[in-house]
Design a protein around this nucleic acid. Sequence first.
DNA 1: ATGCCTACCAACCGATCGGTCAGTTAGTTT
DNA 2: AAACTAACTGACCGATCGGTTGGTAGGCAT
Lengths: 210, 210
Amino acid sequence: MVPTLLASAYEASEKSALTRILVEAEVLFAERGFDGVSINEVALAAGVCKANVFHHFATKQELYERVLTQACDIFGRSLGALELKEQGLAARLRRLVEWHNAFLHQRPHGTRLILRELTGSPTVLERSPVFPLIQNNFDRVVGLLNEVSDELREGISPALVAKVVLSLNLFGFQTERVNEKLMVVGSLATRSELQRQWLDLLLHGIEAPH
Amino acid sequence: MVPTLLASAYEASEKSALTRILVEAEVLFAERGFDGVSINEVALAAGVCKANVFHHFATKQELYERVLTQACDIFGRSLGALELKEQGLAARLRRLVEWHNAFLHQRPHGTRLILRELTGSPTVLERSPVFPLIQNNFDRVVGLLNEVSDELREGISPALVAKVVLSLNLFGFQTERVNEKLMVVGSLATRSELQRQWLDLLLHGIEAPH
DNA sequence: ATGCCTACCAACCGATCGGTCAGTTAGTTT
DNA sequence: AAACTAACTGACCGATCGGTTGGTAGGCAT
């Protein structure tokens, strides 16, 4: 109805068709991957016809890349809004993990979409414009830890800590649905409790003091 | 040529068509997922015609589940062959990580196949016969750590340690190809060096002694 | 030799895939 | 009022999808 090319126009109570296409495409691609979703499905979910999707996006690839880039951007913006100055290592690490985990669950579809690219085969989107964004976001996390690197033991680099922290959070998120089935009987507690535990583990190690 | 239904007949120098189908299907499914691979591709890679694949497997699903189950079985057998008695926590943990990592790289396709199920949406293969196998394998790893649980700090459960160790190894494997691009400049060293570092990190924590 | 079974293949089926096209509607510009 | 443009649709395209069918080739027991 309203002729506009701005995807960032969320002010309308009735979302535009373009916005609906992007939203539904993110959900579907995140859940079933590029090959698992047909353009027709996206169109149906968005309440438009297939040809309309091709009016806004030249190819299926273009739609996919647009959704993916958008997800990376949102992650970057959220990371940029994270302020944790004047804090020590332990507190800084805890806040970082909490922010990261909260973000993952606020945007599960975007997260899963990015994870697909991060862990998928390199044939798809090998040199997509997304990789620099991921690189940049990772570097910024390392930078946050670098400011308190003097509190780290010798031989422990900020990059290593960042990798471990992000890995545990992301893999935990990725396998959440399986975990629920896998650990019905006791072994582990709630998610936040589990997170508290491995953060403590990270800070102090697992070995008992002798 | 030779009429046999045994898939485990590796003794023939010329592998049977069935074996070739299974091998190629594992590679393709691991690389591009269930939806990303057509039966025709599998047939071509195995050097047979499409109808022949459907002669050995009733449906695409059946072929996929067969390959997946096989991958889980091989993991279980390799885990069963791992003997690490009479060792302390540190040595035991190191051997466990080394075995796991070596296995992942010896069978990258099977590993990626399992990871797809572990991290994918629950709609596909929701209640497949594979989940009990995964559950069982995880429990056995926990059991190995449980034998030295007295060396763990209070509040650190063997299940938590197992989850952290397996997560770091698996996510590291999953993102290996990205890592190579992501860390061209120095931040991190070789894979084995990186692994040694986070194992040390796990044992002793990251905080400097005050 | 005859029958039987397994392995294997070319050709085919209806459905769906990504993508195109001609045409309609409606708001904007001149 | 005429011209233009973006948003949108139904019908269609060739290709490929998962799966079926009818039949051939060859080893084996009788």
